[in-house]
């Protein structure tokens, strides 16, 4: 008996509660599907379904076996993915991508961690936005990526979602720079600097919503991503940027010092203090700060050992070098009547 094929039939009938629909989904006729289920029941010595003239329902025993059957099918997919890699001459090649906003130490730690487990594998690493990664994952041009959430996760499997809280980069002489933590609503006179929307549209919208939720609706949004460019805008354009704490450390140590060091700033070794450039400072956001949420992502059913190792290395590197922490439970959700659904 081809166990995998029979288990696919079992899961399909269990999920559709209907032989005809399950057969359609599997692309087969109904009689052979019924025969397979009967054969499986005989082999296992377990009755999986109750059949009446109108419908088919899973038995208590069937329900007990369903989760294990799904797991076995997922493992077999993973096995086939590994076999594909070998067959297609891709043995030794993993195509992976990272977003452009990870600290250098994180990228290095990830590569080290991955090489320790798969020294024989060649790693083809790309720097790609979430949008570009999703497109390539869907086209199977990429084996694994590290994406920003929220994003469209249809057809993807995910590693653990990790959170990097964002603070605010602002001019050292701004009054808010004297605060230990900056309330978002205090930024209302400033424009906001954000990455171009197309690189991660849902995250872009989500960050603007988080700012609005905190009482900060910027009069205009300026687009920039490179550290120096963003710093220039912060210094001269009455604009602030959202960034994780490590961004503050990333500035070159020989960056020019402010011509007019802020009295309140000097001498205070506060958190996020720029080591080299006192003209731009990083401060935590007070209260419920906005965050970046990352996870590894790969196409469903293609999580072989190499992919898994990369996902593990990415999670480990984010935790140990980028201050990422497991995602916290969401805020309360008040469903409104137009939601139509209810739990």
């Amino acid at each position: 008996m081809d166990l995998v094929r029979h288990l696919e039939c079992f899961v399909a009938v269990a999920e559709e509660s209907h032989f005809g629909r399950a057969a359609a989904r599997l692309g087969m006729a109904q009689p052979p599907l019924s025969q397979r289920i009967q054969r499986l029941e005989r082999e296992l010595g377990v009755r999986l379904f109750e059949r009446t003239s109108r419908q088919v329902t899973i038995t208590a025993a069937g329900r007990l076996l369903l989760a294990e059957a799904r797991e076995l099918l997922a493992r077999s997919e993973s096995f086939l993915a590994a076999a594909r890699r070998v067959r297609d001459g891709e043995k030794g090649l993993l195509r992976a991508a990272l977003p452009p906003d990870l600290p250098g130490e994180t990228v290095a730690a990830l590569l080290d961690g991955f090489r320790r487990r798969h020294a024989d594998l060649e790693l083809e690493l790309h720097e790609l936005s979430t949008t570009e990664q999703l497109t390539r994952l869907a086209a199977h041009e990429l084996d694994i990526g590290v994406v920003h959430h929220p994003c469209d996760v249809t057809g993807l499997e995910l590693g653990p979602v990790l959170r990097r809280e964002l603070g605010v980069l602002l001019p050292a002489d701004a009054p808010q720079a004297r605060l230990d933590a900056v309330p978002l609503r205090s930024l209302s006179g400033y424009d906001l600097i954000l990455f171009p929307r197309e690189s991660a549209p849902a995250l872009y919208d989500d960050l603007l919503t988080a700012c609005a939720r905190g009482g900060y609706t910027p009069a205009s949004v300026r687009h920039g991503q490179g550290t120096s460019f963003v710093r220039g805008l912060v210094l001269s354009a009455r604009a602030v940027a959202l960034a994780p704490r490590d961004t503050a450390r990333r500035d070159p140590p020989d960056a020019p010092r402010s011509a007019r060091p802020d009295a309140a700033e000097s001498g205070r070794p506060g958190p996020g203090r720029h080591p080299g450039s006192a003209d731009v400072v990083w401060r935590p956001v007070a209260g419920d700060p906005p965050a970046w949420r990352h996870s590894a992502a790969w196409p469903e059913g293609r999580g072989d050992a190499a992919v898994q190792a990369f996902a593990d290395a990415a999670a480990h590197a984010l935790r140990t070098t980028a201050g990422a922490v497991p995602d916290v439970p969401a805020r309360p959700l008040h469903l409104r009547p137009a939601s139509e659904f209810w739990l």
Binding site: H149, P150, C151, V153, T154, L156, E157, L158, V161, R293, S295, D327, P329, A330, R331, P332, L333
Partner: peptide
């Protein structure tokens, strides 16, 4: 509340 978790959505 779990419906905002990408793993749950997937």
């Amino acid at each position: 509340g779990a419906l905002t978790d990408p793993h749950v959505i997937a």
